[in-house]
Design a protein around this nucleic acid. Structure first.
Lengths: 176, 176
DNA sequence: TACTCTTTGTACCAGACAGTACAAGACTCC
DNA sequence: GGAGTCTTGTACTGTCTGGTACAAAGAGTA
């Protein structure tokens, strides 16, 4: 589903790939939508889980995280953000999946905002920095970078976007 | 296709909506892929055509353009960028459509880069500003903003992203 | 052993899908 | 006005789709 899109991946495709029978599938999932929700959950878990390897409340941690995103995008063959691609396709689908997506993005944003708030407390960010807005901006840059990089099959646009995002964060750093 | 996705829109759907017969369709298009390519072309034409209403080589023009993007996203019911959504779905499809997408994005980027180069010539941007990088960053912010805004059905994230993009451009402005 | 409840394999279904066949209508040019 | 080309409507085909039916296998238990 990540590679070919949700719509383009049939239940039968999944069954073949997993080596399961149909009855098994419909025993554990109520239908395709249920599976899609599970995939979404799974992908978000990976993305959000990956974040915790980094100390996002330090400048070097943020940089390391950005680098890991770049490496991942290249290694996976420019297939885009595991959740970004799903998001676009599902944003036009059933409301329940839609809510799922929105909520997952909020969680992601909150993790960033929390880290930035922590940086503010540690006086790495200036007092009037706005963590929530900075988190939103950063996430936008990441997603936009993924999209351009995927469209062009080139890591450069994403590098540029993340570098700009980092610069933008740095403009809110505390100066002593 | 913009509303429901390419895969989710059947040829028959298109025929019903257009009031055309099947033979008519296959007379003018070699198949669904051909239609998709035309849709992509059409959407890019609209997006790129809309740009020319603005003087992107002025600060106020850029701001006006950004505002128009925001208004459009809200008016169209948070359906995302007309080309961004297609891009994501098609980036996993046939290589010919893929190339189409990549090329169209390059055109978009070039328009921005040209405008920024012009600003540099007019000494609105500092001499060491890099139009191509700035254009890439701006485009990333736009696409990322669209994506978040669509996922959350809220204009705020896109506002934030565009405001940050504008600020980022302004950091390269010439100081006299 | 016999009785359950859970889990799985196989065959099947009705509808949607992209695309084709073919003939008939419309138009152009001599 | 007629031959030939361009355009269109209708019916059809084979394949794929998500989902169901149903029976059999397996696991637990008294």
């Amino acid at each position: 589903m990540y590679e070919h899109g949700v719509k383009a991946t049939s239940v039968d495709d999944v069954l073949v790939a997993s080596g399961c029978g149909k009855s098994q599938f419909y025993h554990y999932f109520s239908g395709k939508n249920d599976l899609v929700a599970a995939v979404l959950e799974y992908q978000f878990e990976i993305v959000l889980g990956g974040i915790h390897e980094f100390r996002l409340d330090t400048w070097s941690g943020i940089r390391a995280w950005f680098d890991s995103l770049l490496v991942g995008q290249e290694q996976r063959g420019f297939k885009g953000c595991p959740v970004g691609s799903l998001t676009v396709e599902l944003s036009a689908s059933s409301p329940s999946l839609q809510r799922h997506v929105a909520e997952a993005f909020s969680r992601w944003e909150n993790i960033l905002a929390d880290a930035l708030t922590s940086m503010k407390r540690k006086e790495l960010l200036e007092p009037r920095a706005q963590p929530v807005l900075l988190a939103e901006t950063t996430l936008s840059a990441i997603q936009g970078g993924y999209l351009l990089s995927t469209a062009r099959r080139d890591i450069r646009p994403m590098e540029t976007a993340l570098a700009a995002a980092y610069t933008h964060l740095r403009t809110s750093r505390a100066r002593r």
